[in-house]
Design a binder for these strands. Structure first.
Length: 481
DNA sequence: ATGTTC
């Protein structure tokens, strides 16, 4: 059976056969409901193009939320041999370490249902949002900013934003130690100096949600989650600093594109050998941007807690505000994986894809080593989100990776053409979701209809066995940029 | 995603 040139491998898994200069086949996870959305853009061509890259292992992988991105598709995973392979800024994306954190509380829906506008407005007043948002904390000197880039989430914790144990619930404990601030341009540093603790724009958000369904009682209990509980999610990345790092290295690599010993099917796949000076410089700078993003989410999390305490006139012990997990979904990392029966060091590019490590991985903090890594998969601002857990199957099939969200199905431009602020706001009111944003335009661009159905995306990966669903939450209040 | 065209 085939669909266009895709061959069915098993339930929800399709293979793009290896042709021409592809080094490996493509593999696409998608269920029947989402299959047609695959052909709305040229993302499958991008899955094929990525397979041309030197050092790529096993497959060029695409998740069900795949859509077109710069060079590499968003919703893609590409693992390169750490010795012979290449690293590419396009395989990480412009928003380096864009990611999500999921926070539990002791609150029940009834505790806050009359306070929603107050809660959302107080958060909005305390966290700068929107393009160019700045001055959440004091402007940092170059040397202070370099400390942020070295320390990641630890930097704000040392200054009273959150607590030391938060680090155990962050991928890499909130810090890539390879970070080298000397590889970050002065322009990138300038853009980052006043942006720690700011939300940004686009699909970034702060959400107040309530847990509606529990799929796995035992795991939910271990994570201190239950039905009707109020949770918070924070989705943001490395702001102007990460964007500038990506821009700088895309240009640098384009200038040295002739030094590659193979032909690129697309200039947007500009890359460098991982072991070359340029490849190492990019990784050192990317790690800085990743650390900046973790510091950013840490500061915002703490500011949201303060806002909630203020709005509800409650105490920290009553609130029980605690980080469940923080995932990145735009990053490259060095990891050991079993390939053809041997353990091999690879550089895993996850772009619009979440790490989903199963039980036993040494990278996980002790409290997650037995159960596996929590995987946070938010929907669009009008729909549900899922907290899941990684599995052994993810380790075998996808280098320990899963989907990252709903995935756009419509361009921002098209969304603006098709609807308007009044219609989107009335849709949100009908769903009883209170929204506050820096700009109306962002709300229109982010309307639910511009996204795939996140439940279909998550269900695909759940049924394949790459992740296991734990709980589903729905939004009550949303802050956007 | 982004001082949304250095």
């Amino acid at each position: 059976m085939s669909y266009f040139n895709l061959k069915k491998v098993s339930t929800h898994l399709w293979e793009l056969p290896k042709t021409g200069n592809m080094r490996v086949p493509g593999r696409i996870y998608v269920n029947d409901k989402l299959k047609s959305s695959l052909f709305r853009d040229n993302a499958i061509d991008q899955v094929r193009n990525v397979a041309f890259l030197e050092g790529i292992q096993k497959y060029s992988i695409a998740m069900p939320d795949i859509h077109w991105g710069y060079g590499f598709p968003i919703g893609g995973v590409a693992a390169m041999d750490a010795e012979t392979g290449v690293i590419s800024p396009g395989g990480v994306g412009y928003d380096i370490n864009c990611g999500v954190r999921f926070i539990r509380t002791n609150l029940q829906y009834d505790d806050i249902k009359d306070q929603l506008p107050n809660l959302v407005n107080t958060i909005f007043q305390n966290v700068p949002t929107g393009v160019g948002s700045h001055h959440s904390i004091q402007q940092l000197s170059v040397s202070e900013l370099k400390q942020v880039l070295k320390l990641g989430a630890k930097w704000p914790i040392q200054r009273g934003y959150g607590k030391e144990t938060d680090l155990e619930a962050i991928e890499e404990f909130g810090c890539l130690k390879e970070a080298d601030p000397e590889k970050v341009s002065s322009k990138a540093l300038r853009r980052g100096s006043d942006q720690p603790g700011t939300l940004g724009s686009g699909n970034h958000f702060i959400e107040i949600g309530v847990i509606k369904n529990v799929y796995d009682e035992e795991l939910a209990q271990k994570l201190r989650l239950k039905k009707d509980q109020i949770i918070f999610m924070i989705h943001t990345g490395s702001r102007g600093l990460g964007h500038q790092v990506c821009d700088d290295y895309v240009h640098e690599m384009l200038m040295k594109i002739h030094t590659l010993k193979f032909e690129l099917p697309d200039k947007q796949l500009a890359c460098a050998y991982i072991q070359s000076p340029l490849g190492k410089d990019y990784f050192g700078a990317m790690a800085c941007a990743a650390n900046f993003a973790w510091a950013n989410r840490q500061i915002i999390m703490s500011k949201v807690e303060k806002a909630v305490l203020q709005a509800l006139r409650t105490s920290p012990s009553e609130l029980g505000y605690e980080l469940i997990y923080d995932v990145c979904h735009n990053i490259a990392k060095f990891e050991d994986h079993e390939i053809d029966g041997k353990t091999k060091r690879i550089c895993v590019h996850r772009k619009g894809a979440t790490r989903a490590f199963g039980p036993g991985r040494k990278e996980l903090a002790e409290r997650f080593r037995e159960i596996g890594q929590p995987v946070i998969i938010p929907g669009d601002m009008g729909t549900e989100s899922y907290l899941c857990i990684g599995t052994e199957k993810a380790m075998q099939e996808t280098f320990g990776s899963s989907c990252h969200g709903a995935g756009r199905t419509m361009s921002r431009h098209k969304a603006l053409r098709l609807t308007n602020i009044n219609r989107v706001m009335s849709d949100m009111r009908n769903k009883h979701i209170f929204v506050k944003a820096a700009k109306n335009k962002t709300i229109v661009e982010e309307m639910s209809d511009a996204y795939k159905n996140v439940s279909d995306v998550v269900q695909t990966m759940h049924e394949v066995g790459i992740i296991k669903k734990i709980v589903r939450s729905v939004p009550l209040g949303v802050v956007k940029g």
